[in-house]
């Protein structure tokens, strides 16, 4: 996946290198600008079994800052924020591989370097006893839960 580009970033930024579970690396540029989660909306996406995005709704496009064309075919970790501990995503994939639903609070990275918090729920899409992909639904999180995660996550690296 391509590194983030300075010309896409809004505001002062810091640079980080992320190493994903598949061994790929990505340079990301991060600001302190938070986008508030819109009331009443759900951010919905679907991926194939390898985590490649196959479907996004308009709220996903609006909140991520990427176009639909940029998102379809990209790995879901295009949203990975360096403040998120890798242990959270290990737990996500282990839970999904058991065929179970995963729920957690996630800080997502926008194309412009900003971020937004979500309460995410991911479930395997099982058809005829086969996992054909995953559906991820994000909703507005409780600020108290976000505050707890902001304290906890730095301790998990």
């Amino acid at each position: 996946m391509q590194d983030m580009k300075p010309e896409d970033i809004v505001g002062a930024y810091r640079e980080h290198t992320l190493v994903h579970f598949d061994g790929t690396r990505r340079n990301v540029l991060v600001t302190d600008i938070e986008s508030p989660y819109p009331d009443g909306r759900l951010i919905v996406s679907r991926t194939d079994p390898a985590g490649i995005i196959t479907h996004v709704n308009q709220s996903f496009v609006d909140m991520s800052g990427y176009s639909k064309e940029e998102l379809i075919g990209a790995p879901h970790y295009i949203l990975r924020h360096p403040d998120m501990p890798p242990a959270a995503f290990r737990d996500l994939w282990e839970t999904l591989r058991r065929g179970e639903k995963w729920q957690g609070y996630v800080k997502n990275l926008r194309k412009d370097g900003g971020f937004y918090w979500v309460k995410a729920t991911v479930i395997p899409n099982i058809r005829n006893a086969q996992v054909i992909g995953y559906t991820s639904v994000r909703r507005k999180p409780s600020r108290q839960k976000v505050a707890e995660c902001m304290k906890l996550y730095p301790t998990l690296f």
């Binding site: 759900l42 679907r46 729920q103 729920t121 991911v122 479930i123 899409n125 058809r127 559906t135 639904v137």
Partner: peptide, 13 residues
């Protein structure tokens, strides 16, 4: 329909 059922399933905590 399967998609809607999956989506509703994510609402259940």
């Amino acid at each position: 329909m399967e998609f809607m059922i999956d989506l509703m399933d994510t609402f259940v905590t």
